[in-house]
């Protein structure tokens, strides 16, 4: 478990839209060990998808990565040219996207889209061999009659099957790291359970490290070893997976967990919703970006003026790194 698969340092990404600069990812650092499964949780606009694209070097103009180191298997890939990155993408680090209906090219066969993932890194492979390998991949993601179904088009597959194909494409070259951006959000609950089980099996077999991006804390609990809560482009709390459910220390983490409908708390009246809206990433408040909505720091000058640094705290379910001025105090309170 100690070998590092991916190490991200001080990653920042902006979208420069002429009039305003949107800070989508702000100075994010983390390590991902071999076979680790990191869940990145956040709401829409928290920068979690921009983070995924930044790591892969796929931020398109007007966006750009302004700073940061991305060390993959001992090599900093952040300074590579697009051509050099091409040899890394799909080979050492791969991507699965949310919507299986738009993640596949509608006018190309399933087979050709899998084949492409193989031949781009091994152009000399013989045709028959590539096709055989593509069929194997389909079988690996539990699609029956694989040979025949290679020649189908995406619209002939169900949503769940398309997502399996997307996974097959991602694991085609046995990548060191798999980034899955909301991979089950568009699927039915029962299909979601199956896709998670499939991911389970594959990443165990291939010893792949996974970054699972989701807005669903339940999926984090079901799949991940560690978790990072993302708010306004920053990781505001990172910890082992149990910590966040046992002792959510950042007020945002706690609020996010509490506003999930829980029938047990029916008697407690209305859901404890988070007031206000996520901040405009082009006009971030000085100080803590959660301060205007924060039940703890809303009225405290310190929170509005001074950006909190990460505090390492230790709670009943392990250690955590929390960007809150009151992290130590809060972990004592929640850890009763």
């Amino acid at each position: 478990m100690d070998e590092l698969a991916l190490s991200v340092r001080n990653l920042s990404t902006v979208y420069d839209t002429g009039g305003s600069v949107v800070h989508a990812v702000r100075d994010v650092s983390f390590d991902l060990r071999r076979t680790e499964r990191l869940g990145v949780v956040g709401e829409s606009g928290s920068g979690k998808s921009a983070l995924a694209l930044s790591i892969l070097g796929l931020i398109e103009p007007p966006g750009r990565v302004v700073e940061g180191e991305i060390v993959l298997g001992g090599r900093d890939i952040s300074k590579l040219s697009d051509r050099q990155l091409g040899a890394v993408r799909g080979k050492e680090i791969a991507l699965v996207l949310q919507d299986p209906s738009s993640a596949l090219d509608p006018v190309k066969t399933i087979g050709s889209q899998i084949v492409e993932a193989l031949t781009v890194h091994e152009p000399d492979l013989r045709r028959a061999a590539v096709r055989r390998r593509a069929a194997e991949l389909l079988r690996e993601v539990d699609i029956s009659q694989a040979e025949r179904r290679l020649d189908d088009y995406p619209h002939q597959y169900s949503g769940g099957m398309r997502q399996r194909v997307a996974i097959a494409i991602a694991i085609a070259n046995n990548p060191r790291v798999l980034i899955a951006d909301e991979p089950t959000t568009a699927l039915d609950v029962t299909t979601q359970a199956q896709v998670l089980a499939l991911l389970d099996r594959l990443v165990d077999e291939h010893r792949t490290a996974v970054i699972l991006i989701t807005h669903n804390l339940g999926i984090v609990s079901d799949f991940c070893d560690s978790v990072a809560v993302m708010y306004a482009g920053r990781f505001v709390e990172t910890s082992g997976v149990d910590h966040i459910f046992v002792a959510p220390t950042h007020p945002y983490s706690e609020a996010l967990l509490k506003c999930v409908p829980n029938p047990e708390r029916l008697a407690e009246g209305p859901l404890p919703a988070i007031s206000g809206f996520p901040p405009d990433l082009s006009q971030l408040p000085s100080g803590c970006s959660f301060a205007p909505r924060c039940p703890v720091g809303r009225d405290l000058p310190q929170c509005h003026e001074q950006a909190p640094v990460p505090h390492r705290v230790s709670g009943p379910a392990g250690e955590a790194s929390v960007e809150c001025h009151f992290a130590e105090q809060r972990i004592r309170e929640v850890a009763v």
Binding site: L58, D82, G86, R89, L97, D99, S102, E116
Partner: peptide, 13 residues
């Protein structure tokens, strides 16, 4: 479209 991102993610130029 996401499938362009996916294609780039495969390593395509």
């Amino acid at each position: 479209e996401p499938f362009i991102t996916v294609a780039r993610g495969k390593g395509l130029r």
